[in-house]
Design a protein around this nucleic acid. Structure first.
Length: 212
DNA sequence: AAGACAGTCAACCGCGGTTTC
DNA sequence: TGAAACCGCGGTTGACTGTCT
């Protein structure tokens, strides 16, 4: 027997969520917990598809969300992780308590990308870009390393050359599937030691607590 | 004051992997 | 075992807001 489609798109609302919808979703999940997004809208009395409910909960309603401006250590961590993982926003967000992948992605695209470009760093591969104008503090010859609020960026390969991601789950470091193992692979590949301290607050990046 | 433009971010879309039947 | 639905992800869009001219 075939399953029913997740929702009848003709009968669902789209666009911005109203306060009433938020409240219904919040009440339902706080009472029944997350999961079964397909049946949730009807059970919660919402004219939304399950996908939309999930997104709204994860990105906006979850009580453990931090929201507000990103701290400097959060910025540094995003940059470090992006150098390692590329646009794997969910993995990056997993290392930032209270942040969502959507939030990290938006922040990267609107702030951090430009910040790196202004520093003369190509945000795609985290290499110094020779085509871009380099700020004065980066032109000195005594040391060809620069610091981004504590993030040491050597002049050579800062991260692995970011190759186009062919498909989901396809990542450098021989198909590793998470940041922790990627770090191990990364260091064993003979690549530069980046001294990547991937911690935020008091949550160190370890194999035991790594995101899946 | 108003129109143009740029920046931000919530939400949608479509894809690929996984699960279910 | 294969087809279809589910789920989660990254890319993209579009509404809204702030700034500039």
């Amino acid at each position: 027997m075939m399953r029913k489609p997740c929702c009848d798109k003709q009968d669902t609302n789209k666009g911005a969520w109203s306060k009433q919808e938020d409240q219904k979703l919040m009440d339902y999940i706080l009472k029944h917990g997350e999961g079964c997004w397909r049946t949730l809208p009807q059970a919660a009395g919402l004219l939304r598809c399950g996908k939309s409910c999930r997104l709204r909960w994860i990105n906006y309603l979850r009580p453990d969300l931090k929201r507000g401006n990103f701290a400097e250590d959060e910025e540094d961590l995003i940059i470090k992780l992006h150098a390692l993982l590329g646009n794997r926003w969910s993995l990056i967000a997993g290392r930032l308590p209270g942040r969502t992948d959507n939030e990290v992605k938006n922040y990267w695209n609107s702030h951090l990308r430009r910040k790196l470009i202004n520093m003369g760093i190509d945000p795609n591969n985290h290499r110094l870009s020779h085509k871009l104008p380099r700020p004065p503090h980066m032109t000195k010859t005594s040391s060809d390393a620069t610091t981004l609020s504590g993030l040491k960026l050597s002049s050579g390969t800062i991260a692995q050359e970011q190759q186009p991601v062919k498909s989901r789950g396809d990542i450098n470091c021989d198909q590793v599937s998470d940041a922790g193992s990627c770090l191990e692979e990364y260091n064993s590949c003979g690549l530069p030691d980046l001294n990547l301290d991937l911690t935020i607050g008091n949550i160190p990046f370890t194999q035991s607590n790594r995101v899946e």
